[in-house]
Design a protein around this nucleic acid. Structure first.
Lengths: 334, 334
DNA sequence: TTGTAGGCGTTATCAT
DNA sequence: ATGATAACGCCTACAA
């Protein structure tokens, strides 16, 4: 009773393997009673058709890969929730990969997925590199890919992003409206997609209000928390900004720590607005630009399944832009 | 060039499929040059052996399932990180499942995993039900399971927990030492494992300091955020506690919101300590009992691989208790 | 409505 | 060191 399979069932029930198979596939070419008899017996013996054998036969895995930079981050966690939601409804499995923002890991994961391991991939990218061949081979193998939030512009796949430019513009204008004259922009890498677009929104908002864009006030940080702490500390000491617009949650958090230690009062001395999906932002009183993370996950997964459903046929790849929302809280109160 | 497999490779390279296979398996029974020639050619054509076919052959999936109540929660996210870390090193894939704390989902997932879908399962359970047969069939099929944090005591599998009793005792004592006379205990379900053990620590600490355990001060909450808000609000109004020990992070968060709205000052009017893995707890000033989530993930995965390595042989199942740590912050300052 | 048989891609065994 | 072959469990023409 250990290795139960279709053959064994067939023998026990005096039926053929095809009939057993049909009972599970929901085929109509089977007598209702027969099916029920089979399913009942199967249930009793805890049998389910082996997924991998079916994969091999069908060349369908009913599995998708989700590749994200981090998991312990409310944005990605919520996005994964959205993806999971859709996948579950479709009866798909989710294979989870975390890159730690290391481009090499991303490449290596994707390369692994190249031989029929999954039917599709949803990812938020980690790199800024130009050699995206590792992604192009997926297309050749007809494995659809959807990017969300962090994307490579030069790759022709469906994308789900948010209106980063507009919300950055709005957030910056908001800071200006509270009276800020020297607004610093915190960014991890000002030359890649998100950092760049958000900076543009920031810069244009300044311009609109007759304020000069000062390169000094663009504080370029790293992936390392400790280093960021020093960078931000120095920036606050040297530049004495009266406002901070942070393109990334963890830089705002770092700024908070610095302010705590330096006895800088928020919002008294310094007003702060940050991109963030922190669920407890209200408690912190942090003003945020919040992306619809969960909805982005839903959308990304939906797009992927769209492509999967039209399998083979060419699908017109689009970028779907969802709207972020500015929540003004205590950290930028007048 | 679409459907490349070892047969195709064999033909192109004038070798047999066995030789090709050996090149990938790291077998020593192959000429070094031959192997390199094969690997080079394979790489050039983006070929990797099909994982599912290998599964079918070997009855090894190199995949494990992780089942958790939530993903968008710092504790679980960090635990998953730990699991992922270990799994990656072992070359294992992770299939992720989220139960939303719905017992039926847990049962259904586990049942799905019953037919060779994964080599092992790591889970933090959602139920309190008594019918754990769905788990027992896994044992019959030699699929090892490891529980972490939330466990079923009556199931004989390896478990990773924390010293909940001691840390609850310590946290409560700490509140007493700050002068609290009426300490409320917030819990989601005081009759199941975690809620129960933590309450015992709370009760015993009170007893040690000659304080009476007052059942009224045990505030039993629900899974619903809104309902919890009212429950806690009523509790604060009616019971007028001067301290809160929360067994679960989100109840503490709810309490914070209530205090905000009711103008109750923390720690002035009310001191708060909570179990929590919130990464930004320091910023909130929330005193926490913090579980080593990441390490628990590491440990759970390690235990699972131990069982996998000794495959078949009986493994003595143990409960591994890691230590939580009390961080006293502003919310319980004197 | 049910049964037969071949093949999905791989690897282990056995032979050479 | 390399090759031929059978088998893993399933599904789907095709046949009956």
């Amino acid at each position: 009773m250990d290795n139960i399979n279709i053959k064994v069932l067939a023998k026990k029930l005096n039926l053929s393997t095809s009939t057993i198979s049909r009972a599970f596939s929901g085929s109509t070419d089977i007598n209702k009673d027969t099916r029920e008899r089979i399913l009942a017996f199967a249930k009793e013996h805890n049998f389910l058709p082996n997924h991998y054998a079916a994969n091999l036969r069908d060349k369908k895995t009913r599995t998708l890969a989700v590749i994200v930079p981090e998991i312990a981050n409310d944005f990605f966690a919520q996005a994964i929730n959205g993806i999971e939601e859709v996948a579950r409804k479709k009866g798909f499995y989710i294979l989870l990969y975390r890159t730690d923002d290391v481009f090499e890991k991303e490449v290596s994961f994707v390369n692994y997925l190249n031989n029929g391991k999954v039917d599709g991939i949803i990812m938020s990218v980690s790199g800024e590199a130009n050699d995206h061949n590792y992604l192009k081979t997926l297309a050749k193998k007809n494995i659809p890919v959807v990017f969300f939030d962090r994307v490579y512009e030069d790759i022709d796949v469906s994308k789900v992003t948010t209106n980063d430019y507009e919300s950055s513009f709005e957030a910056t204008e908001h800071l200006i409206s509270t009276g800020c004259k020297r607004i610093a922009y915190l960014v991890v890498n000002k030359s890649i997609s998100i950092g760049k677009v958000r900076m543009q929104g920031y810069a244009d908002a300044l311009a609109k209000h007759g304020m000069v864009f000062n390169d000094e006030l663009v504080v370029d940080c790293s992936q390392d928390e400790k280093i960021n702490y020093s960078i931000i500390k120095n920036a606050l000491e040297d530049l004495k900004p009266d406002g901070i617009f942070s393109s990334v949650e963890r830089l705002a958090v770092a700024a908070y720590y610095v302010c705590n230690d330096m006895n800088i009062s928020i919002p008294g001395d310094l007003k702060v607005v940050s991109f963030s999906s922190l669920q407890i932002a209200p408690l912190l009183g942090l003003s945020t630009v919040t992306q619809p993370a969960y909805e982005m996950g839903i959308k990304a997964a939906t797009l992927l399944f769209d492509e999967l459903d039209k399998k083979g046929q060419h699908v017109f790849k689009k970028t779907h832009v969802l709207k972020s929302k500015l929540f003004v809280r205590k950290s930028s109160a007048i």
